[in-house]
Design a binder for these strands. Structure first.
Lengths: 249, 249
DNA sequence: TATAGTTGTCTATATCAATAGACAAATTTA
DNA sequence: TAAATTTGTCTATTGATATAGACAACTATA
């Protein structure tokens, strides 16, 4: 009934090239299970017919994905799917990076990219319940799982209360552990706003993405159990590697 | 510290044309407040310099956005921002279309696009706790607010139990009201999985989007208060018009 | 009424994206 | 070994993208 079979939803003159659209389709196909992992992709001619384009266009798409490390092409044999399943990142009342990915990866950790002190912007001040321009500490971090970047986040904390959290973060590699040093042994997610956009230059660099990739963006506020704001943050997830699982919270 | 100033993160040879990237940037600028609503955009030459491209490239981006109804260009005067803010669609334990958008729009409703009976696919069967291939009713709907499409959803219901829900839906224009006819006066969201991708042909048509647009995708299961699965659904939201607000649930 | 600032249109050129066809190179199968 | 299948490379052509420059048309302002 639904889902046209062949010549499947390719848009011309859209500002997005056909090879990029087909690369995205293949990625989606892998994520959804149409193309099994470690198995061969259909041959180039078959894909070309399926999507209603020239074989060379399919080749462009494939070569981009080979470049990204998703596929491996072998002359005479076929093209094989390498990439792992998308991680399912749970978001709930007690959202924690490491515990959330337990069972899906053998290893994960957070890297502190940079830290700085700055006056709070409008939205940060609102989120943390501070006066406009109050000093805040900003931590730029990257989450990695099995060696692949899976998130990139900026977190803001009131500078007065959390002086030294950058050091704690560098040492522990954990937000939860760092906050514990300031007497916060539990915190809850108060709000989360979600959107999506194309990756910008910084995303591409930090998340090892190819131009045109999509990132999921969450903006959230964490509070203590009695409702006191602790952390305002904006996180970016590469849509091709991560999906967000909104758990009952 | 962060965010380069000029020649700001435009990617060449990415498979996404420069005019499309700049159009996306302008949309983002409007959403974030860099470009105020009802005010003039910077002149074309200024934008061209800012993004490090030719004036004609900026013009292509602007003309696409004029086509989308986001901007209005007036010869001799300038180019003006028309579009409304993105709607904030709340997702929580009791996610309801109409009540969720109350206060943000003066009018909203759901249109039933089509309905059919089909054997349950793997994921639908799992979501509803049915045997593979059990008959399910599928409702294709579109959510509209103030005359603009803001969502597009497919919902699946066990055919045996909800025979006639398509008629109920057509008459009431509400999932909640339709389920009430089957004795379900409350239901909760059990799970939600979120992802994002480029809009496909059907999305473009049903949501009145331009090629290259991004859609947020949620896959969710609704259950009765005692945990009995009622509805499995996949919803698509145009990222340029809607953000998802994950409320405490 | 000039003048400056802005969008609109035109021509020209170079590069990227997509199609088309032919054949080579490597692998698997009969 | 021979044939069939599949990826890799090459040439050629067309249309979309992007740059460049010049000037027209319209608006607001000094």
């Amino acid at each position: 009934m639904i889902g046209q079979m062949a010549a499947d939803s390719i848009e011309r003159r859209s500002g997005v090239s056909l090879w990029r659209q087909i690369a995205d389709k293949i990625l989606h196909g892998i994520a959804v299970g149409d193309f099994a992992e470690n198995a061969a992709l259909p041959p180039e001619v078959a894909l070309a017919e399926r999507y209603g384009v020239n074989r060379h266009t399919v080749r462009s798409a494939i070569s981009a994905l080979v470049q990204e490390g998703v596929l491996r092409a072998e002359q005479g044999r076929g093209t094989f799917v390498l990439s792992r399943k998308r991680l399912s990142y749970p978001i709930g009342a007690r959202t924690r990076f490491s515990t959330g990915l337990q069972g899906q990866t053998s290893e994960r950790h957070i890297v502190l990219l940079s830290s700085s002190v700055e006056p709070a912007s409008q939205r940060v001040a609102e989120g943390l319940g501070l006066g406009r321009g109050a000093e805040v500490i900003r931590l730029e971090t990257r989450g990695e799982a099995d060696g692949r970047p899976v998130s990139r986040a900026a977190g803001w904390f009131e500078a007065k209360r959390f002086a030294g959290i950058d050091k704690a973060m560098a040492e522990t590699g954990s937000i939860t552990a760092s906050l514990a040093r300031f007497g916060i042994d539990d915190y809850l997610r108060q709000s989360t706003v979600l959107s999506a956009r194309h990756a910008d230059a910084a995303d591409l660099a930090d998340l090892a993405l190819q131009p045109g990739a999509i990132v999921l963006v969450t903006i959230s506020v964490n509070v203590t159990p009695d409702g006191q704001p602790v952390q305002f943050s904006e996180s970016r997830f590469p849509a091709e590697r991560v999906e967000l699982k909104l758990s009952a919270l």
